[in-house]
């Protein structure tokens, strides 16, 4: 089986997901991802002519709620699990200098 995803592509995807990978991992995941794609590729053996593309497994649409506002969590509850806070703000490392 030819490799569907080469290490360079894995590096790019990892960068988009903000993940650091070693050279070994790049090789390893390139093989694994290729295996997965090859496996899924079996589906292309099916003849899908005349079959409508689907966007989901359920034949349901238009599930809405009414536009009514209700309070949920207090800011104390919202911030309870935050590793770091500043007053009522979530605190994160400086985004801009």
């Amino acid at each position: 089986m030819p490799a569907k995803i080469d290490p360079d592509q894995v590096r790019r995807i990892a960068r988009l997901a903000r993940i650091n990978l070693t050279q070994e991992e790049l090789e390893q995941f390139s093989n694994q991802l290729s295996d997965i794609l090859n496996y899924v590729d079996q589906l292309s053996e099916l003849n899908t002519e005349g079959v409508e593309p689907t966007t989901g497994p359920l034949k349901i649409s238009n599930v809405f709620r009414q536009d009514q506002a209700a309070r949920s969590l207090s800011s104390e509850q919202a911030l309870a699990n935050a590793p770091c806070r500043h007053g009522d703000f979530f605190a994160v490392p400086k985004v801009l200098e």
């Binding site: 009522d88 703000f89 994160v92 490392p93 985004v95």
Partner: peptide, 14 residues
């Protein structure tokens, strides 16, 4: 909204 004028961190208001 990110708030940038806090000391040492960026504040996030969701």
């Amino acid at each position: 909204k990110n708030v940038h004028d806090l000391p040492g961190c960026t504040g996030v208001d969701l």
